[in-house]
Structures are given as C-alpha cells and as structure tokens.
C-alpha cells in the first residue's frame, strides 16, 4: 500500500469528497481530503502528493491560490485538476494560466474523473 500514489483532494462539499475518495481508492490511490484551500496547502507541503484535485471556489483560500502556491512557492510541477461550476469560465482560464493541467465542470461524472486521473498519472 505504501507505493500507492497519493492524491490531495481539496473540496468544501464533504459528501462529494467522500464519494470521490471511495471511487479513487477503489482504483488503488491514496486520498487525502482537505475541506478548504488552507488545509490543502498544508497537506500538499506535508505529503508531496502525485496529483492534486481542487475546487476553484472554497472558503478561506481559493483553488486558484492553491495552484499558485504549488507552482510558484513550492515550484512543483505536480499535475493539478480543477473543478469549476457553470459560469466560471473566466476562473478556469486563470487556473490554466497559473498552471492547472485539466479541469472538470460541475456537475461531472465520477467515472470521467477517474479516466482523467489515470491519464495524468500514467
């Protein structure tokens, strides 16, 4: 289990977090759940995950700031997938500018997320 790839998931909707955790752990990944951007940054610094999933809009620290922190402060190229709600196209563009690798618009299908995660972690 120790060689399982680690994923940090930052999402303020706990039900969704739990669902994705189950789904991705079934695929053999190890999930670390953060409820907001602040927790996410702490986890990323501590565990150095192989992949980051983050919602754009979260309390305290937004997903954009998480991306910026990873790319500019930690200087890491960890792949990042962002979740966005309808109408946040502008934010998604910003996320890509900051260095996000992929995005999923909510509502999304968990199965599709698994496919994208696998592709990025191949």
């Amino acid at each position: 289990m120790s060689d399982a790839k680690k994923i940090v998931l930052a999402e303020d909707n706990s039900t969704l977090s739990l669902l994705l955790k189950f789904r991705l752990e079934k695929e053999g990944y190890k999930l670390l759940i953060a409820a907001d951007g602040k927790e996410a940054i702490e986890m990323i610094e501590q565990h150095d995950p192989e992949l980051i999933l983050t919602d754009i809009m979260m309390p305290f620290i937004s997903g954009l700031e998480v991306i910026s922190h990873v790319r500019n402060k930690l200087n890491k190229q960890t792949p990042i997938i962002v979740f966005s709600a309808a109408g946040q196209e502008e934010m998604v563009l910003k996320a890509f500018n900051l260095g996000a690798n992929d995005f999923m618009g909510k509502p999304f299908s968990p199965n599709e997320l698994v496919i994208r995660v696998k592709r990025l972690l191949r």
Partner: peptide, 13 residues
C-alpha cells in the same frame, strides 16, 4: 445530503 451531491455530479450516480 442528497442534494449536496446531486448538484455536483452527473451521469449514472
């Protein structure tokens, strides 16, 4: 609880 999840996902689930 149902709604919180329903609003965020699509497809079979």
């Amino acid at each position: 609880t149902l709604l919180r999840l329903r609003n965020e996902i699509s497809g079979e689930m």
